[in-house]
Computed example of a mutant assay.
Amino acid sequence: MNRPIPALDPRQRRTREALQSAFMLLATSRRYHEIRINDILQASGVSRSAFYEHFASKDALLASSMEDAISLLVGMLSDQSNPRQVEALLDHFWEKRTLARGILQGASSRVIRNALVQRIEAHLGRRGGKRLRIPHRLVAHALADGMFSPIIAWLAGESACTSTELASALQDASKATLASMSAAAAQTASPSR
């Protein structure tokens, strides 16, 4: 699920993809905190210097590996989003649920959640003149939790629904949360005294 990096030449792209593939392969058999950069280097055949040309840390590699998923989740906040793409992402997570649960929980969940919060905050900053009742950072945290928590619970089997139902509910809830955080919503919700 990694999209190509257009600014990289083919050799750089192959190096980046080798690192991401090695990381994901290691993640199928180890917990995130057990994976060391040396393990990634050995599995990918990439040198340490080449690793650091592409990624500042193992956390940066993980965030990059989840970029497509994060983009789809952030996309739910826009009018151009496609629930079928989110549904396909959820289907992918379900098919690889052991790996997905392992990556979306524990130490790695902090990294992914932080990347999601940063991307949502950046998205909110690009919305133009639409003011929010609270700072973008706080809204980003609320939205990230509203997206992330149901997916984790669903993958853990805490409750059952289809990926179609979950994708639709996540999109509706994300848009409703964002609408409720708008400054205009605050003005209409305030009782007159």
Rank of each mutant, 00 (worst) to 15 (best):
R97F: 04
A179T: 12
D39N: 06
P6C: 09
S47A: 10
R11D: 12
A27E: 00
F51Y: 14
I5R: 03
R84Q: 14
A69R: 06
N114L: 12
Q105W: 12
A50D: 05
H33I: 05
E165A: 13
L62R: 05
F51C: 08
R16D: 06
D9M: 02
G102Y: 08
T15P: 01
G125V: 10
R137M: 02
R137C: 03
I5Y: 08
L26A: 07
A183N: 07
A173M: 08
C161Y: 07
R30D: 07
I152T: 15
S163M: 07
A173I: 00
S71E: 15
R30N: 10
V139Y: 10
Y32P: 00
N82K: 10
Y52L: 05
Q20K: 03
P150Y: 04
A63I: 01
R16T: 07
L19Q: 06
L138W: 09
R14D: 13
Q171K: 14
G45N: 05
S71F: 07
L143Y: 05
T177H: 06
G102Q: 14
L138T: 11
H141T: 14
S149A: 14
V86R: 05
R193P: 11
L89K: 07
V111E: 03
N38T: 11
S29I: 01
F23P: 01
S108W: 03
S108M: 03
A122N: 09
H123D: 14
F55W: 00
A186E: 15
